[in-house]
């Protein structure tokens, strides 16, 4: 029934993915550190031309970063005196290594999720370990998707960090052996419901990362500090990040809505009521209402910007509490979705 060999292989894939994410994070951090020391005086487009070849998927060649119009010879905006082209090059290379490592890790991660599913002959999102491994995969895939479309490598650092933490927790404390599910969980609606919930949670997480970044940069800007950099690249303006966060949330919200509806259909099939205020249901309702509030706040005078961002953070808090807190502290009908 359970293919133990395959389950073992899956675990090794996930652990390796975790290790490679750690390396990727290391590369991003190094990019940041090198860039901070040497960044000035070069616009990124020039750099890219100098740097030549492209990285793997989502590589950064050919980007135009019109947002970094630093003059070629004058001092940088922070008054750092001299350009250090070699250092900038190195930072740029490290950033690209980070992206390549992220892609590699995502491949291992995907293999881990797939083999887990194959080992038990069902979809691999039946307990918390599986939910977290699948959810973090979505986070990384959303990042890579953004990277394909936008010049968004600066996100790498902020995405790999939480992913690494969550995966680390998954392979250590959350891990449960591959196994069969309770009969109530044998349902197509479960598959659909949890798949949608995993995808929405992953997107919400990316949105939260962007929101935190927005709040940080906004604070920086209000303090009158200059623009922020990762490596040689200037981070976009806070407003731009805020807008991107909105797009990610607006993408995730209907998926979450669908997940809640699918869950209700499943509950109706399993228990005879589509909504019964079970703690898990209650918290997904709370999450939904808070994000509806976020979408409202974005069009309400006086609530745009920071207030709306805080609401989104409350929403992500509710989402995480539903995922972890409710499973751990509160017992309901869902409690067999055990750790």
């Amino acid at each position: 029934m359970v293919n133990e060999t395959l389950a073992g292989i899956s675990y090794n894939f996930v652990v390796s993915a975790t290790a490679v994410y750690a390396l990727a994070l290391f590369a991003y951090v190094a990019e940041w550190a090198f860039g901070a020391r040497s960044r000035v005086g070069r616009t990124v487009p020039e750099l890219v031309m100098a740097g030549g070849g492209d990285a793997a998927v989502g590589g950064v060649g050919g980007d135009t970063n019109a947002e970094a119009p630093l003059s070629a010879d004058g001092p940088g905006p922070d008054g750092v005196p001299a350009p250090d082209a070699a250092g900038v090059d190195r930072a740029e290379r490290l950033g690209r290594i980070g992206v390549s490592l992220t892609v590699l890790a995502a491949g291992l991660h995907l293999a881990g999720v797939l083999t887990r599913g194959l080992s038990v002959g069902r979809v691999p999102w039946g307990n918390m370990y599986e939910f977290v491994t699948a959810g973090t995969l979505v986070v990384v895939l959303v990042y890579l998707a953004l990277l394909r479309r936008f010049d968004a490598r600066w996100l790498g650092l902020f995405v790999t960090m939480p992913v690494l933490l969550a995966l680390g927790a998954a392979v250590t404390v959350l891990y449960v052996d591959a196994g069969q599910l309770m009969p109530a969980l044998h349902s197509v609606w479960l598959v659909i419901h949890v798949a949608a919930a995993v995808i929405a949670s992953g997107c919400f997480t990316v949105g939260a990362v962007l929101t935190l970044l927005y709040l940080g940069l906004d604070l920086r800007a209000r303090r009158g500090l200059g623009p922020a950099y990762i490596g040689a690249r200037r981070l976009p303006d806070p407003d731009v990040i805020d807008r991107l966060a909105y797009r990610v949330f607006a993408f995730a919200f209907p998926i979450w809505t669908f997940a809640v509806i699918a869950g209700a259909i499943w509950a109706e099939n399993a228990w005879g009521r589509y909504w019964g205020w079970d703690p898990k249901e209650t918290w997904s309702f709370i999450t939904w209402v808070v994000f509806a509030g976020y979408l409202h706040a974005r069009v309400t005078a006086g609530w745009k910007g920071r207030a709306a961002a805080m609401i989104a953070l409350v929403g992500i808090g509710c989402l995480l509490f539903n995922l972890f807190g409710v499973n751990i502290w509160i017992i309901g009908k869902h409690s067999y979705a055990k750790m």
């Binding site: 019964g276 205020w277 079970d278 703690p279 209650t282 918290w283 309702f285 709370i286 209402v289 808070v290 509806a292 509030g293 409202h296 706040a297 069009v299 309400t300 005078a301 006086g302 609530w303 509710c318 409710v326 509160i330 309901g332």
Partner: peptide, 26 residues
């Protein structure tokens, strides 16, 4: 819109005790 927003929040907040304190119907 402002009051709608506040009411949405109150609704979310009001649901919290329902998940923390045991409920007779459930």
């Amino acid at each position: 819109m402002r009051v709608a927003l506040i009411l949405l929040f109150l609704l979310a907040l009001a649901a919290v005790p329902g998940s923390v304190i045991p409920q007779t119907p459930q």
